Simulated scan of single mutants.
Amino acid sequence: MIVQALAFYVFAFIVMASGAMVVVSRNPVYSVLFLILAFFNAAALFVLIGAEFIAMILVIVYVGAVAVLFLFVVMMLDINITQLREGFLKYLPVGALIGVVLLAEILLALGVLGSHESPVAVLSQAGPQVLPIDNTRAIGRVLYTQYFYLFQVAGLVLLVAMIGAIVLTLRTRPGVRRQRVSEQLYRPKEEAVTVVKVPTRGGV
């Protein structure tokens, strides 16, 4: 228990410090790197509570796709840092209000505000007692039995969205030369190779 508690405090401290550095860092690339560090430590916290499937999804989706995409976009775009800082004071009251609301919700969920007993603990006690089964297997059983058709429909929706995004962004512009692999592969030999007969001891 001491090792688990120590690991929890270490991972939680790194998550909080990384989240603060995401906001405070002046370099956007450093902000994305701190965001990736926060995702990794949040995944470690999920592993500590036995939600290894959520931890794996957090690493694969957020770190492997979203955060890396943010990093490439930030590195490729020419971001004007001075222009971004101009609106900081303008949106500071709204951001502070949202932060206060989120803090109040977290304290209410932990039982610090209102009742002395945590609502999360009450919900966990009121839940049905299930058999000891790992998190990934339980989600897989529910997903591929009860929600199998909805899962397939969600996959089709994502496929249609991907095809639509490709069709909308694939535009033919006049004057732009594009590589056509099929024409290169099936062109005749006469168009690709020119045979020149050079006499002996002569030049081309």
Rank of each mutant, 00 (worst) to 15 (best):
T136Y: 07
Q129T: 14
F8D: 06
T172Y: 08
E105A: 14
V204F: 15
A55C: 07
I163S: 02
G164T: 04
S118Y: 04
G175H: 10
E105G: 11
R26M: 11
I163M: 13
F148T: 06
V167N: 08
L143T: 09
F70M: 06
A104I: 15
R173S: 07
V47E: 01
L48S: 00
A7D: 05
S31G: 14
M56K: 14
P119I: 08
R85A: 11
A154Q: 12
F88A: 06
R180A: 09
L123F: 06
I79D: 09
N135P: 02
I98N: 13
L159W: 03
K197F: 15
S25L: 02
P119L: 11
L69A: 08
P28N: 02
F88H: 12
E86V: 15
Y30S: 07
Q179H: 11
Q184G: 05
L84A: 13
A126G: 08
E190S: 15
L71G: 02
P28A: 07
V100L: 15
S18I: 01
D134C: 01
V10H: 04
P93Q: 13
A104S: 15
A65F: 06
Q179S: 08
V23R: 07
Q4H: 03
L48K: 00
L110K: 09
Q4P: 05
Y9N: 11
L159F: 07
P188R: 11
L110D: 14
G64H: 06
V68G: 00
L102C: 08
A109P: 00
N135T: 03
F39D: 00
L107F: 12
V3K: 13
R178M: 12
Y91W: 15
G140S: 12
I36S: 02
D134S: 08
A51D: 02
D78S: 13
E190Q: 11
F8R: 03
V3T: 14
L150N: 12
S124F: 13
S31K: 13
E117A: 09
A161S: 03
V74F: 03
G203F: 01
A7C: 08
A154L: 09
L92T: 10
G114P: 01
F151H: 03
N41H: 04
L156N: 09
I79S: 08
V61G: 04
I2D: 09
V160Y: 10
L6W: 09
I98R: 12
L123Y: 07
F11V: 00
G95N: 10
V29K: 11
I166H: 07
I133F: 04
F13Q: 14
I81R: 14
F8T: 14
L97Y: 10
L158K: 02
A5N: 12
E105W: 14
A5M: 12
M21N: 05
H116L: 03
L69T: 09
Q146D: 08
L92Y: 12
L58A: 05
P93T: 04
V74P: 01
S124R: 15
L45T: 00
Q129W: 11
E117D: 06
Y149M: 12
A96I: 11
L159R: 03
I57Y: 02
A104N: 05
A38N: 02
A65I: 11
L69H: 03
M75C: 04
L69F: 10
